[in-house]
Design a protein around this nucleic acid. Structure first.
Lengths: 251, 251
DNA sequence: GCCTAGGTCCCGTAC
DNA sequence: GTACGGGGCCTAGGC
């Protein structure tokens, strides 16, 4: 369902009638403002405006993946006529933010019953953690897993293990290049575990590490283990390797 | 310019001819895959596909602000026919990632000469820092600014100042709620300044602070100053307050 | 609601 | 190019 070059009144009615029914795409020339935690002005130009039934509002220009202005799901979008011109007002309740678009011209409005399907992403950090838990020898031989996503006062530990000597080993996992933040994170966890449970050391597992991060790593006596998620991808995306083989890990 | 219910051949020609000329919106029913740093399958359903002249590819469903799958600017997008069906292939060079869409049906393709304007965001952390530098009494009376974005081995300090006693004061600024990461960041900076320049202390300036962050703040003997960027917004977004009044600060 | 952390984060900037 | 950090980040998961 679509309208070409609609009159403002027509466009407003179309938007208000259908805004909860499907995805609305508006090809238009408009200006606008964003006000909220920050502020921005949108210069008058042609844009693609998308209104989703969940309240999402997107205003896209001809560049970049990120919309120029937007409001996330949960916003209230409404078309109003003000002195014959069409305004599209979007209100996000918390935090209180607004996007107001003033339409100079509407070239097309289309309603489209888009799918609400979500994609399951594979090869994430969580998948890498799951793989490592079942293949701890990749991290270091002789480790026994104590827990995953273990809460501490400093945050959640990706993998907590114990080595043959009974010392706690904190494993922090990054899917890609680990930076110094990852090292500081690991250091905090090790300190927290040392304080709460006893002697502990740390291992950072990542596909690579920045030079600065490596410097801090040495300074804090932490260990780095390189893994190639790309090479493991086949295993990571085949969750068939889950089975009930967790008992095998015990050695 | 638009085509309704185009044949695959027609759609492919349209996309390949215009993909660098403007924003192309495709209303279609398709399935697809994403392969790269991670992996995902897009189930066959109706989607809005956006192809931008800068190479951006977005596939939107009826929910969420984030596309279901995408490729960022710099990707190469191409339509190909394979056994009579239309494939849209997007290749991102570095890191190597691909999105491939298999069109079951194309309802509409529209070409739109969207504006390439960019918005200037105001009320950012940088704006807040600039404001504080000119109004240091908001942070603490008696401070003299030494520098902004001062590099240290631990990172860049938002504001470095000295107090009446000649002690260095590291100021870390957050636009919104400061979490424990902000506190650890500040702690690192204070340690770096203490090591490089002499006695130093730290002040965290933010609109609020999480309870955990506040706990660490006390532990490290750091100070918290609450500011309301919302209330300062009028001043933050009016860059008229910049003038050449920087000399006044010296007092 | 608050807090924590990941993300195919994107994006600009400084080196 | 790499590295670093902000962002109106968004989004999911706990509590």
């Amino acid at each position: 369902m679509r309208i070409l070059e609609p009159e403002p009144r027509e466009a407003a009615a179309f938007i208000n009638t259908n805004r909860r029914r499907g995805l609305i795409a508006v090809f238009c020339i408009c200006g606008g403002t964003y006000r909220g935690r920050a502020a921005a002005e949108l210069p008058v130009a042609p844009y693609l405006v998308v209104i989703k039934p969940d309240g999402t509002l997107l205003v896209h220009g001809s560049e970049k993946a990120t919309p120029l202005v937007w409001n996330p799901p949960g916003s209230s979008n409404m078309a109003v006529l003000e002195g014959g011109t069409l305004l599209l007002k979007s209100l996000r309740p918390r935090p209180s933010e607004s996007v107001v678009l003033k339409m100079e011209r509407v070239l097309e409005i289309a309603l489209f019953d888009a799918g609400s399907s979500s994609v399951r992403l594979r090869g994430t950090e969580r998948d890498l953690v799951d793989f490592l838990v079942k293949n701890m020898e990749v991290v270091e031989p002789g480790l026994d897993v104590v827990g995953v996503e273990v809460p501490t006062e400093a945050g959640h530990i990706d993998i907590l293990a114990v080595d043959g000597a009974g010392e706690y080993v904190v494993v922090e996992v990054k899917r890609d290049v680990a930076d110094h933040e990852a090292v500081f994170q690991l250091r905090r966890y090790v300190e927290a575990v040392a304080k709460a449970r006893g002697r502990a050391r740390g291992i950072l597992v990542a596909s690579d590490i920045t030079s600065s991060a490596f410097h801090y790593l040495r300074e804090y006596n932490l260990k780095f283990v390189k893994v190639k998620p790309g090479e493991l991808m086949e295993k990571l995306i085949n969750k068939n390797n889950c089975k009930s083989s967790s008992t095998d890990v015990r050695r």
